[in-house]
Computed example of a mutant assay.
Amino acid sequence: MKTYRIEFTQEIPVDLNTAWDFFSSPLNLTEITPKDMTFDVTTPDMANIKMYPGLIITYKVSPLLGIKLNWMTEITHVKDREYFIDEQRFGPFSFWHHQHHFQETEKGILMKDLLHYGIGWGPIGLLANGLIVEKKIKGIFDFRNKKVEEIFGKI
């Protein structure tokens, strides 16, 4: 299986506590994900849970053609106010490892996402990534970038 690597960065004019509190809450994913994906966190009582290693989060998501899929991720690593990592346990990818990093700057916070993913399915997966998946992922992060600017402002 071929794995792919995509990196996204964004500077936001907020303090570290504000950025961490917003992005480490799975409930805020719905707000920064394109509406056509109908992204819903299905884990009960997430509002009262602080992120920790081993946290399992379940979702319903429609990444393509409105087809709803179950997705489960586990928060595998957390260094408070510095980074956290989520890994898919089951869902649309053969492999999903997503690092979220936060660094204070003179202007606010530099947020960096490092995503490694794999599709599987041999040549069909290679074709799907080239035609659909990579563009869809980049589109999701472009949408997120714009929503984050709407919420927090732009540097």
Rank of each mutant, 00 (worst) to 15 (best):
E31D: 12
D86Y: 11
D86M: 11
K50N: 13
Y4M: 02
L127H: 00
W96Y: 11
V41T: 08
V78W: 07
K138V: 08
P63Q: 07
F152R: 05
G139R: 01
T38M: 11
Y59W: 13
A19C: 13
S62M: 10
T58H: 13
E11Q: 13
P92W: 06
D15P: 01
M51T: 07
P123L: 14
T105D: 08
S62Q: 15
I6K: 04
K68Q: 11
I49K: 14
E104D: 03
I49Y: 01
W121D: 00
V148T: 14
K60G: 05
I75A: 03
K136H: 10
W121Y: 12
H101I: 05
F90C: 03
I151E: 08
F8Q: 05
E11T: 09
I132Q: 05
V14T: 10
A47Y: 08
R81Y: 06
S62H: 04
N145Y: 09
K2H: 07
E87G: 01
M37K: 08
K35N: 10
D15C: 09
P92C: 06
G130N: 14
G130T: 04
V61C: 07
H97S: 03
Q99P: 00
T58G: 11
K138A: 12
I119R: 03
W96G: 03
T73G: 01
A47W: 09
E150H: 11
G122T: 02
P34D: 11
N145T: 14
T105P: 01
G118V: 04
W20Y: 08
K50H: 12
E150G: 10
D36K: 11
Q103H: 08
I12P: 00
E149H: 15
T18F: 05
P92Q: 09
Q103C: 01
K138Q: 14
E149S: 10
L127T: 14
G120H: 07
H116S: 11
I124T: 13
P44M: 12
P44V: 05
E31K: 14
I12E: 01
D113Y: 00
A128N: 00
D113S: 02
F22H: 03
G91C: 09
I57A: 02
L115Y: 06
F90V: 12
F95A: 05
K35H: 12
W71G: 02
P26E: 00
N145I: 00
F95I: 02
R89S: 02
W71M: 04
L110Q: 13
M1G: 12
L65H: 10
F90H: 10
Y59F: 15
T9C: 05
W20T: 04
H101R: 10
M46F: 06
S24E: 06
T76R: 09
T105S: 09
F23M: 10
T76P: 07
V14F: 06
T43G: 05
W20P: 00
L114C: 08
E104V: 11
R5E: 15
D86F: 11
D36Q: 12
I124V: 15
G118P: 02
V61F: 06
K147T: 07
I32W: 07
E150A: 11
E74S: 10
G153I: 12
Y117T: 06
K154I: 12
T9R: 14
R144Y: 03
R144Q: 04
D36S: 13
I109R: 03
K136G: 04
I132G: 02
K68D: 04
V41Q: 07
F93C: 04
Y4Q: 05
D80I: 05
K146C: 01
P13M: 08
